[in-house]
Computed example of a mutant assay.
Amino acid sequence: MNRKIIILGGIGAGLIAASIIDLIDDMELLGFINESEPIGKELGDFERKFKVIGRDKDIPEFLKDECTYVFSAFLDMKNKEASYNRLKKLGIPEEKFINLQHPSAIVPKGYCKVGHGVMFAPLSQLSPDTTVSNNCILLPNSFLGHNSFMDEFSSIATNSVVGAHVHIGKGVHIGSNATIREKVKIGDFSFVGMGSVVLEDVPNNSVVVGNPAKILRTIKN
C-alpha cells in the first residue's frame, strides 16, 4: 500500500521534496498545504505540477488516514523561529513526518542517527557518527562532517561543507557555499550567509557573513 504524502510549504525545498517522492515506488504525493496560495492552484512551472490541497487547519483531517504522512518544507529565511513555532503549534506526531532520501545521497546505514521528517537532497552526504534531528534539510551537494550534531529544524544549503565535531543549533540555516570549521558551535536560530567561512562560535539569533565570518546583526523576533 502506497504511503500518501502531503508537503507543508511551497516551491523551492517543497519541489525538491516532490521530485524525490517521484523516485520512490511506494510514495504518492497528494499535494501541498499552503497558507498563501489559493486552494487548487498548481505549483511548478513545467510538466510536473502539484496542487495546493488545503490549509494548516486541514492537516488533522488528512492524517486520519493511517497511510498519510507529512513532510515540512518550511524554509523561511527571514524568520526561521516563527516557522519553527508554527510547525510545533500544528501538533503533528513526529512519527507522521516522513524521511526523504534521494538515491544519490550518502547516509551510511548504521553509522548515523537520523530523526523524523529529514530530507537528503541529491548528492548530500553524512559522515559516520553524525546526528541529524527532526525536520532538518540537507540541500544538494551539502556535507556534514563526522561527529557533528544538527539540531531540529536546521538546514544546510547547496555546496556547503560542515567540518567535524560541529554543533548546529536549533533552527539554523547555513547558506550556499559556506564552510564551517571543525569544533565550532552555531547557536539556535542563527543564519550563516552564503559563501561565509565560519572559524569561531556563533551566538544564538545571529546573522554572520564574510571570510572570516563576522556578526552582521542580531535577529529579533
Rank of each mutant, 00 (worst) to 15 (best):
N2E: 09
R3Y: 00
R3S: 06
I5S: 01
I5E: 03
L8N: 12
G9K: 07
G10E: 06
A13V: 08
A17W: 09
A18P: 02
S19G: 00
S19D: 08
D22I: 01
L23P: 00
I24N: 00
I24Y: 03
D26R: 07
M27V: 00
E28P: 01
L29C: 08
L30T: 01
G31K: 04
F32W: 08
I33D: 08
P38H: 03
I39K: 11
I39H: 00
E42V: 03
G44Y: 03
F46W: 10
R48D: 02
G54N: 10
R55A: 01
D56A: 12
K64D: 08
K64R: 13
D65A: 02
E66C: 03
C67W: 06
F71W: 10
A82H: 14
Y84R: 10
R86C: 10
G91N: 07
K96A: 06
I98R: 05
A105E: 02
V107R: 01
V114E: 05
F120R: 01
L123R: 04
V132Q: 07
N135F: 06
N135H: 12
C136I: 03
H146V: 00
S148C: 12
D151W: 08
E152L: 10
S155E: 13
A164T: 10
A164P: 00
V166C: 09
I168P: 06
G171A: 07
R181Y: 12
K185D: 04
K185N: 13
F189Y: 15
F189D: 10
M194D: 02
S196Q: 11
V202S: 04
V207G: 11
V208L: 12
K214I: 08
L216M: 14
L216T: 04
R217M: 15
N221Q: 14
